[in-house]
Each structure stands twice: as structure tokens, then as C-alpha cells.
Nucleic acid binder design. Structure first.
Lengths: 135, 135
DNA sequence: GAATGCCATGCAACTCAATTGCAAAGGTTA
DNA sequence: TAACCTTTGCAATTGAGTTGCATGGCATTC
């Protein structure tokens, strides 16, 4: 059983054909991918099957989703030990030129003082600009 | 000339009928509004006209847009002196129950260490959770 | 091994926000 | 008034996301 299947089994997601392909694709790319990206990368796999795989992954914390303002939700494999809790959060960087979304693991998100009785569940922090290749 | 028109003139946006209505609506509501919100609030005004007004406002820094993950872009009037630069940024709070988006002006966004040669242009920082009324 | 049931898959169709094309209306200038 | 430019309203299109439904595969039970 390879690494990809291992991740799925660990997260209690049945490692079916489509799921393995999708997860492997995400692992290969390293950068956050949109549904369309994956669709183009896996030309023989149906869009809705990919979509449902991603939803399953998200529910089971195999991937987390990022809304980077490109108009398309992107998905990235959760880091080891990630539970998608606020303390696992990190900033994302979206390059407005090449549309690549990077995870900025090095910057912890600071404690944010919320108004009284506001409760944080998750966060989506996206910095837009130009990446090293485009600036 | 009232306050609404004044803002438009200052930002060199011709104060037309639709634009005045839209901006006044945003000023009234105080919270970030989606295109649909505004459409419902101004039932006799055409959606595409509202849309184009918002685009014009954005270009001329009358409003800034927020992608809060609700699937709809929201718009809020820029604060006095706002140039929509990184230093004018603030966090937003999106209530997953009532779908209201709040501007958290009190939390400055910290300096973020970007990878080498990455350049920040803007940012979209959204915290999701429950607001005081819904928690 | 056949029957049953469940889940994943593929395909097509649909929803809905965002956007655009185009013609009419309004306002400005010569 | 005529010519011009911008805004507006309406209709239609785009595109991401999502769902309904029938088929197929796999596992469990008899």
C-alpha cells in the first residue's frame, strides 16, 4: 500500500480509484489546486466524481479548502497532524499574475481579539500579490 | 449636496441616480452587503446597474470588496482615508449562521514575513464563526 | 455461487452569482 | 438642434458548484 492510500486509510476514507488519483495529484502538485486544475490534470476522470472526492476529503480532514479570491475554491493536502482547527491555520498567498496559491506555513496567525461573544471557528487568510517568479 | 454625493464627488465618481442609491444603501447598512442584498434593498433598480456601480466604486476606492466565503462578494464603504492599501487592511468576521460580515477595525494586521521576492498587494482576511447574536 | 444491499462513479442537467451585449435614455457640448 | 458620450435596463451568457439518477463494483449474507 503506497503513501497515498495510507493517508486515506488513516483518515478512514475508503481508498477508491478516483480518490487515490485525486489525492496523489494534490500530493504531487504541492500547491493548492482548484477543481478545474484537477479536472484538467486527470482528463479521464469525471468532474463530479472529483468534486465528491474533495468533499469527502474535506469532511475527513484529508485536505483543507482555501478561498483565495480567484473565484475558485482551492484544495491543499493537510499537513501532518493538521486538524483544521484555528491553531492549525496559516496564511495563503495568491499570485494575481500566475494564479498559484501558496501555503505560508512559516507565519503563525496571531491571536485576534474578537468582539464580545464572537466565537471563531475557522479562518481564511489570503494575501494577494506577486510571487517570486512573477515580480 | 448631501454626504453621499459628497463622497462620490471627492472620489471623482459622477454621482448618478443609481450610484447615489447604492452608496446610500451601503452607508445605511454599515455591514458589508452582497450584490443580492443591495438588489433586494433597492427593488426598482436593475441588478447589472448596481453591479456596475459597485465596480466603479471599487476602482475609485469608494468601497472595498470582501470575499467572505459565503459564495457572494460583499462590499463595504471604505473608511475615511482608506486607500485600500495593505496598511488599511483589517480582518473581517463572517457569521456562519446569519451570514453577516463584520469589519473588525480594531485588529491591525501584523507584518507578515513573505518568502523572498514575494510582493504583497492586498489581502483578504476572514474569520468564520458565530457572532454575538448567534452564539 | 446467487441474491442483496450499499457505496462510488459517470453523465446530464440544473442552480445561481457574476458578467456582458445591446439598444434606449439622459445629459453635455458644440 | 445635432452629435456625442455615459449610464441605465433588459436579456442572455458564462462558469463554478452542485444534484438526480441510473449503472457498476464490491462486500456481506444466505
Amino acid at each position: 500500500m503506497d503513501k497515498t492510500e495510507n493517508i486515506l486509510v488513516k483518515k478512514r476514507v475508503k481508498p477508491t480509484a478516483v480518490r487515490i488519483l485525486v489525492l496523489r495529484y494534490l500530493l504531487d502538485k504541492k500547491k493548492a489546486q482548484s477543481l478545474k486544475d484537477i479536472e484538467l490534470g486527470l482528463p479521464n476522470t469525471d468532474r463530479s466524481s472529483i468534486f465528491r472526492s474533495l468533499k469527502t476529503f474535506e469532511e475527513n480532514k484529508v485536505v483543507h479548502s482555501i478561498e483565495d479570491g480567484s473565484g475558485m475554491t482551492k484544495y491543499a493536502v493537510c499537513a501532518e497532524g493538521c486538524n483544521c482547527n484555528p491553531e492549525d491555520l496559516h496564511y495563503h498567498f495568491y499570485c494575481t499574475n500566475c494564479s498559484i496559491t501558496y501555503c505560508l506555513f512559516d507565519n503563525p496567525i496571531p491571536q485576534i481579539k474578537l468582539p464580545h461573544n464572537f466565537r471563531m471557528q475557522q479562518a481564511n487568510m489570503v494575501i494577494k500579490g506577486l510571487c517570486d517568479k512573477c515580480s
